[in-house]
């Protein structure tokens, strides 16, 4: 299976990922190559096989629903690109 430049632009949009126009062709080629590689999985009959999400087949632990962390807003916002009055600033979303 191979992809087109349009496919790649669509995937990039889904990922909110800017890609340079001049790179679209090489991504198209690389991704098509990867899909070709992945098609090899089709050789293997996997009917009845349970998908494996965790190498030790563990499920996620749950913890009691109690507060364990202290508020460190100022500390964490010290590295934010843009904050004001304790809020993260982004361009206006609603006019």
């Amino acid at each position: 299976m191979s992809l087109t430049a349009d496919d790649v632009n669509k995937i990039a949009h889904l990922a909110r990922l800017g890609i340079d126009k001049q790179d679209v062709e090489s991504y198209t080629k690389d991704l098509s190559g990867m899909l070709e590689l992945m098609a090899r999985m089709g050789e293997l009959d996997t009917s009845g096989v349970e998908p494996m999400a965790h190498p030790l087949d563990q499920v996620q632990r749950l913890r009691p629903d109690v507060v364990t962390e202290t508020n460190q807003r100022g500390h964490f916002q010290a590295i934010a690109p843009k904050v004001e009055d304790g809020l993260y600033l982004v361009p206006k979303v609603i006019e």
Binding site: G18, I79, P81, V90, P91, V93
Partner: peptide
């Protein structure tokens, strides 16, 4: 590009901020 790490200059809107910061 919102809470930490790189943010692009002068984003036009939120989608532009995400897309260009990551790009």
């Amino acid at each position: 590009g919102v809470r930490f790490g790189y943010r692009c200059e002068n984003p036009a809107d939120l989608t532009d901020l995400y897309t260009r910061s990551r790009g």
